[in-house]
C-alpha cells in the first residue's frame, strides 16, 4: 500500500504541511462539494480537491483521510495551513488536475 511519503517523493507533489507521512493511502477520492465528500469519501482515502478554505481540514479530520491533495495550484489560504498543522492533517499540493493525479498513480502500479 502506498504511503503519503511516496507521493511527495514525486516532484509533481509538494508537501504543504504534515507530520504523519507514513499514513497509508487507501484509494483516492475526488470532490469539491463538502457534503458529498463527507458522505462518500472513506477512511484513509487521499482527497483530491480544488477547495482550499479552512473547512476542508475539518472534513479530512472527521473522516480520518490520509491526506488532502490540492490540485491545479489552487491557492491555499493561510488559515487552512495553520488549522491543518493544529489538527495534524497532511496537505499536499500539485499543479496536476485530478485526472492527471490518478493517471500518475496508475503509472506507479
Amino acid at each position: 500500500m502506498m504511503k503519503v511519503r511516496r507521493l511527495i517523493e514525486d516532484p509533481a507533489f509538494e508537501l504543504v504541511t504534515g507530520r504523519d507521512l507514513d499514513r497509508e493511502i487507501k484509494d483516492f477520492y475526488s470532490g469539491d462539494l463538502l457534503s458529498w465528500v463527507m458522505s462518500h469519501a472513506k477512511e484513509n482515502n487521499a482527497w483530491c480537491t480544488v477547495l482550499t478554505h479552512v473547512n476542508i481540514v475539518a472534513v479530512s479530520a472527521l473522516l480520518n483521510l490520509s491526506c488532502i491533495i490540492i490540485c491545479e495550484d489552487a491557492e491555499i489560504e493561510l488559515a487552512t495551513i495553520e488549522k491543518a498543522k493544529k489538527e495534524n492533517v497532511n496537505v499536499v499540493k500539485t499543479s496536476l488536475n485530478t485526472v492527471e493525479v490518478i493517471q500518475k498513480m496508475i503509472s506507479y502500479g
Binding site: 469539491d32 462539494l33 463538502l34 457534503s35 458529498w36 463527507m38 458522505s39 477547495l51 473547512n55
Partner: peptide, 16 residues
C-alpha cells in the same frame, strides 16, 4: 464557492 450548499445537508442527516 467554498464547497458548501450542495443541498445535501438535511437529506444526509435523514439518510444517516
Amino acid at each position: 464557492e467554498m464547497g458548501f450548499g450542495a443541498g445535501m445537508g438535511l437529506p444526509n442527516m435523514k439518510k444517516n
